[in-house]
Design a protein around this nucleic acid. Structure first.
Lengths: 350, 350
DNA sequence: TTGTAAGCGTTATCAT
DNA sequence: ATGATAACGCTTACAA
């Protein structure tokens, strides 16, 4: 009962108890099972280990093998459901492969500091999501195993959602409904995916001869509060848009709320399209039409890519630069979009 | 330019370049700065380290110091915004203290497997949130540094939200509005905090001579879908409750949606109270009256408690069992609650 | 098949 | 003030 201040149980302890040498224990307990050990010896070791409550010391293993069996993931803010999903997907894949995940948020701690500590911890790889891949400290990351999530193709490999396609899908949907006056709500940002959503939307609209007028393109933070501010501005416009694409669902939720409060009927008077398809989207009323970005899948793929590259590592200088994997976006039509209200156009006086 | 397959830069390399011994480098680079080294020597070492791009190997440090400077956190599912907040709060505190956070979700991988790998990685502490603290493998955790989040007081210390108080606040609010027929929507679960929310509500109602009739207490999953199922059942009841408390905001969101769809006006015909106060709550229309549980604060406190216990560790057998810290709940009155509709009571024929 | 010996990159305890 | 020297607990040749 009264254990004398439990010291760690090591392979030496197990060896002693089993009456074998320490390396033999190591062979039995850790090895790829392709270690050739006499069955009865093996058995003795296993029994001794269990009786002693032996726990592998991964730290020691890491030191000698130069692999930490840990990977890091850096995201802006876990409170954004989108990033929580990305992390969740990555964690799952990593854990299933026996890798630990070191979580880093850049909300309060600068990105490069996180990178520094991850490097010091000898992580076998790092995943970076949406935090300016272009400006990463290349020197520091010399030889590091890096995978970018939702960043532009770069000196590092990565996985990305089809952000341009997301904007395009939103635009095509609204165009097909017959809309002609469009608004856009989103932040001024250097996050690639966010920019591409906007570009996909604007370009597609433009390709049909329409445009998002400069007054109807509002720069607002990518939050629900931002969406409210933006939509209020749009509603105050001389000639309101009949359809608005929002950079993400949070913004769309804010926009939707302002409409409801101001008795602007959605979708009859105003169509709203979001992006991401977080759970929130289907809880609002009307339910939000949005473009689904498979965040969890994105994280999972990034982790898989990272694990693959780690395996193939050490095989000399790698040809690297595999093509960027694109994860398809998907339009989810729900209740916040419809045909535009009858326009009071010059030709048809009301 | 063409670096010859960069081998790791070690303190030996730095020592050689600086013309000092390896331990001296260690003294300069790592130590609490209270190392007594000649200023010029120190300078030479620092310069050499920078020129070589030296990066501390925390793994090696861990091995010798028997501390990994890492902590683990185990949560059910990061996709629940509540847990994302808990993790976020913990990560922040840990990172600020130089600790890495190993993230573990029990959604797909069993809890005890996570614990095992955490232990193998020699984490300095573990935080466990809402996953059955009572049933934790005590033997395995012998001597481990554990902090429970939102679990009942136990053989391990912990921090918890005032879950009973949350239920009580919801009840008092509805009682003060004059409600007399109550419903409750929540899961049958062994998660302590969830049970206590229910108990706080039911007991408080009961203390005023009212009760949640068995038909109005619906067991549904703690999800939006569950809330929908539950509310549909309540609406179908002979004598509907006029006020419903939901175990969390997700459930409340589902309930609210069903009401809207069925043209049951909230709050005029039906009052709904949620719990957690996740962002969603203020994005719905009407905005959700709810009991705020400071998830982020909960995570932050848990991390602080853990860090404190780690410091005070090694000081022999610890008296442990410090009192459980309770984080206060707070009622947030928004738009989903109001006085009950005029009742068609037996005494006053319509 | 198994034991001996070496070493991973630190920190820590000594002498010097 | 600094340099040998010895751990930390493990994996991996290599020898027996």
């Amino acid at each position: 009962m009264a254990k004398p201040r439990t010291r760690r149980v090591t392979t030496h302890d197990v060896a002693e108890r089993a009456g074998v040498s320490q390396p033999t224990v190591s062979l039995v307990l850790s090895r790829n099972a392709r270690a050739r050990v006499a069955p009865e010896t093996r058995e003795r070791v296993i029994v001794a280990a269990r009786e002693l409550g032996y726990v592998t010391n991964v730290i020691a293993r890491s030191l000698v093998s130069s692999r930490s069996f840990a990977i890091g993931i850096i995201v802006p803010d876990l409170r954004n459901p989108f990033f929580a999903d990305v992390v969740s997907g990555a964690e799952r894949v990593a854990a299933e492969s026996g890798y630990a995940v070191l979580l880093c948020e850049t909300r309060e701690i600068p990105r490069d500091r996180h990178i520094q500590t991850l490097l010091e911890r000898q992580v076998d790889g790092i995943m970076v999501d949406a935090i300016g891949g272009a400006s990463l400290p290349a020197a520091m990351l010399e030889g590091a195993n890096l995978v970018l999530i939702d960043e532009p193709p770069n000196k590092w490999p990565g996985v990305a959602s089809d952000a341009f396609g997301a904007g395009r899908l939103a635009a095509e949907h609204l165009l097909s409904l017959g809309h002609e006056r469009f608004g856009f709500l989103g932040p001024a940002t250097n996050v690639h995916a966010i920019r591409m959503r906007e570009r996909g939307f604007v370009r597609t609209i433009g390709g049909r001869g329409f445009a998002v007028s400069s007054t109807a393109l509002r720069r607002v933070p990518a939050t629900a509060a931002g969406g409210q501010v933006g939509m209020r501005a749009l509603l105050a416009l001389q000639s309101r848009p009949t359809a608005v694409f929002c950079t993400n669902d949070l913004v769309a939720a804010g926009a939707l709320k302002v409409c409801s409060v101001d008795s602007v009927r959605v979708p009859q008077d105003m169509s709203i399209v979001g992006c991401d398809d977080i759970e929130l989207a289907s809880l609002l009323l009307p339910e939000l039409t949005t473009v689904a970005i498979p965040a969890r899948e994105l994280g999972a793929r990034a982790a898989r890519l990272l694990l693959n590259r780690m395996r193939s590592d050490g095989a000399g200088p790698r040809p690297d630069t595999r093509p960027q994997r694109m994860v398809a976006s998907r339009l989810v039509i729900r209740g916040s979009t419809a045909v535009p209200p009858k326009l009071k156009s010059p030709e048809s006086p009301s």
